[in-house]
Amino acid sequence: MKIKGIAVIFILLLSTWLVLNHSLQLPIILIGVGLAAFLSLIMCDKCSVFNEIKFTPKAFLYTFLYIGVFIFELFKSNIDIARRVLSPKLPINPGIVKAETILQSQMGRLILANSITLTPGTFTIDIIGNTLYIHCVNIEGDDMEQYAQNIVRKFEKYLEVLYG
């Protein structure tokens, strides 16, 4: 199904062009359609990442849920980092832990890694096979594997529906 990937790239490029031009005159729309079609057809060999998006009503609902959870976590992480930075004793216990992921698609893994980077006190250093290596500012508790797995599970629940 290459058509889906080409269509997604076409819509993305066309909307970016229209927003940057900030007008809806006919020549600008025609130039935009031409450029977007040209670029999306050129790139269609390597756009396999966009083929995995599912367009079902459930996926649509989960996108909004995911954005809500993501923004909440973003605010939580920033308040957490600000509290650690401003306290005079600098309370950190850093370490690199690993966690398994069940996502198979490239796009799902990309979004998972980016979301982990923006959540409280964690950022993804590397992915080897199915294993994510995560740097934590503050490792809580003795069971570190379980702690890392919980971080991954929180986002996987939504991304599994979106990308499989």
Binding site: P94, I96, K98, D126, Y133, I139, M144
Partner: peptide
């Protein structure tokens, strides 16, 4: 020196 563990170094 504060770092507790480094799983990536152990594996790679």
């Amino acid at each position: 020196d504060l770092t507790l563990l480094d799983k990536l170094e152990e594996d790679t």
